[in-house]
Design a protein around this nucleic acid. Sequence first.
DNA 1: TAGGCCATCTGGTCCT
DNA 2: AGGACCAGATGGCCTA
Length: 379
Amino acid sequence: MAPHCDTEQMMQVAEGTELPDVWRQRSAVKVGIAFHGRNMLTLPFEEPHLMCESRFGANYPREGAPESLEKEEHSLHAADSSNSDMRDAEDDISDREEEEEEDEREGDQDDDMLPKKRGPRKKRSGKPESDRSKVRRHEANTRERSRMHGLNDALESLRKVVPCYSKTQKLSKIETLRLAKNYIWALSETLSAGKRPDLLAFVQTLCKGLSQPTTNLVAGCLQLNARNFLTDHNGEVMFSGRSPYDAMYSYPASDVNTPPGHSGSTLDSSAKPFRHYSYNGAYEPYYENPSPEGGSPHFDGQLSPPMNFNGIFSLKHDDPPDYGKGSHYGMRYCSAPGRAALAHNSMYRVSPEGRFPYDLHVRSQSFPAQGEVNGSFHN
DNA sequence: TAGGCCATCTGGTCCT
DNA sequence: AGGACCAGATGGCCTA
């Protein structure tokens, strides 16, 4: 018997045995997980009160009809799913059994008399083994679901340690991985260079190969002009042709406090047409490999960035309830460009005014007061 | 409506 | 035998 906790209903939602899909989706909406207005079906792992030891694995409730069968029914009755939602569990089980029998009569070949491909249509054997196989299949589904939840949980943790984490605008999985790879690469190159990095190159590396929406998000978090970091279809960074500092900051230098987007410069239609940005400029000196994304034909053979400081990288976040413990060193995000939070020992200096929005620290380095966090990174 | 993204189910494969 | 892992298939939701 699974231990009871307050998440019993949530577990039933996850199990899909008693609540229809629309209810599950509403549960996901309730926890506020969305990306560009699209609600995900992700469970709220970030919320400790929703996490109990019965969350995963064998502690999932396994009584009740298999959700796989419910899904089959759901697809078969998609037209009147609202009516099926009103059925009680007993009727559901009865209907599922009937549909199972129909499936069994359909045989093991598709329309072209070819072996079945992978997919939801199940091959079933005799009745005695069918019951057992159903149970095993059900348990395997539960494990697989838990495994994927764990994978998503890890991905969510990754989202929190790459720049531009946002609970309301989540990066997609693939974009999270790309940004994380770029981030590791950029940090590694910075450390291996052993000197003050080129900031434009750093941000360009971050945005390398990212989609335009993600580039916009990263640039928005950094309060930069995303147009200067867009990549073309080959993954090469497009550059507007302006000076690096102008490219970094779309707003006029005399208007530091003007948020991007308010000045209108970000969308300035009079901007020069893009031209292909050459890394022979500020980028090249700090990056022996010009790109983490295959801009160099040799990159595929060197997928791992060079490791520095024994490979230790960690991020320092203020008030990080679930991932910040133990992170005593690393990158600290400042709350806004131009703030005095840029420490003297910061490796990052974008301009004499110190307008780069974050600074980097490595182990053994001291860092200033931690009362400031970059809200633009982690909102 | 097409395409992107996602969760889920499913069967195959590998390993213990 | 059973679990972990993987990838294909499917359907839902959302945006352009």
